[in-house]
Design a binder for these strands. Structure first.
Lengths: 185, 185
DNA sequence: CCTTGAGTATACCGATCGGTATAGTCACTA
DNA sequence: TAGTGACTATACCGATCGGTATACTCAAGG
């Protein structure tokens, strides 16, 4: 990844997330990144490929964030570490995600199932589901598959409602519900 | 609402939802509705106003659908009627909502808080939250506010994950969790 | 030394964007 | 019968869209 490409990807990440994908032209991205359009196309090939890269990069940062928050507290009980995912989301929402899940937003703008970005979206959600299940298993949950799914529903629901401003303490609320679900097990 | 305007709104509803708002031009809408661009602008004034109307119309249909499903079974216990909202969503997803919540998708494309469509989005979510709370009260839930919020999280989470294809039986799963939450009360 | 890759600057392409202007048709109604 | 509102047809506007072409500079490396 060349320095110019790095700048392009960083700028694209900000503009795409803040304004929506279709609303941002490649001209604006190149200009903001102090790069010519030619360089942008030499590095990324097309806007669609750039979109996919944007999503991939964001997914990487999200995974690192979650894993960092959870893996940091190894002395906690596995059950509490499972709930840490909600704390990770709360931090993420405040700093990087005020406009909701970038992948859900991208899905709204990419109806074509063949778009290169769609695979990244699928992978992002699948990873989170798998991660939740792993944590659930470590916490001794009997039906880890079902609980992980339920937690995913809560996380996604909290993200949406929080970004819409309907439910102020959405993530905290979701965490409480999650705690109850785990105690039921 | 003139016949031409009606056609425009119907076509806009389909194209906006299926393809995303920014991806659809007024030219395409007018053409598909067998209407000239002039007529479209005479009736709606601007694309932004048309977007707001599209959302308003869809909100109306959604509310009618939910109320119809719930209000139909007056002989059910209030608790079971509360859970009927999940059945209403499941039907809605299968027939009208395969690409997820139109309002969440619109929010992704309308970052400007002053856009006329944004108010419609807020109203749609607020209505559902209020409706859930009313049903919860009728079901004798002690903290109806909190339960309604939790149910909203589950509904929104189920909508998102179902449309993304990550969790096949998302709405059914959400309903099960909802049932558990109600029983805890 | 000379090639290669990364970069700049600029101009261009056809297509489409949201929106407007002009002129005319038709049916209903005061 | 004269006017009004809904509509069609068509042409146009400046701006922007994603993407390409040409010509050039410059630093690094075999």
């Amino acid at each position: 990844m060349t320095p110019a490409a790095e700048r392009v990807l960083e700028v694209a990440g900000k503009l795409f997330y803040d304004n929506g994908i279709h609303a941002v032209g490649v001209e604006a991205i190149a200009s903001e990144a102090n790069v010519t359009k030619k360089t942008l196309y030499d590095r990324f090939g097309s806007k669609d490929a750039l979109i996919a890269q944007y999503l991939r990069r964001r997914d990487e940062r999200w995974r690192e964030h979650v894993v960092r928050v959870v893996e940091q507290r190894t002395r906690m009980t596995p059950t509490r570490r499972l709930l840490l995912v909600f704390d990770a989301l709360e931090q993420w929402m405040a700093t990087e995600n005020p406009r909701g899940c970038a992948f859900v937003n991208a899905q709204a703008e990419l109806p074509d199932a063949g778009h290169p970005g769609r695979e990244v979206i699928r992978e992002q959600k699948q990873w989170l589901l798998d991660y939740l299940r792993t944590l659930a298993r470590e916490a001794g949950i009997r039906n880890s598959r079902k609980l992980a799914t339920s937690l995913l529903l809560l996380l996604e629901g909290a993200t949406v409602t929080a970004s819409l401003g309907v439910v102020p303490g959405a993530v905290g609320n979701a965490k409480e519900v999650a705690k109850q679900l785990i105690e039921l097990n």
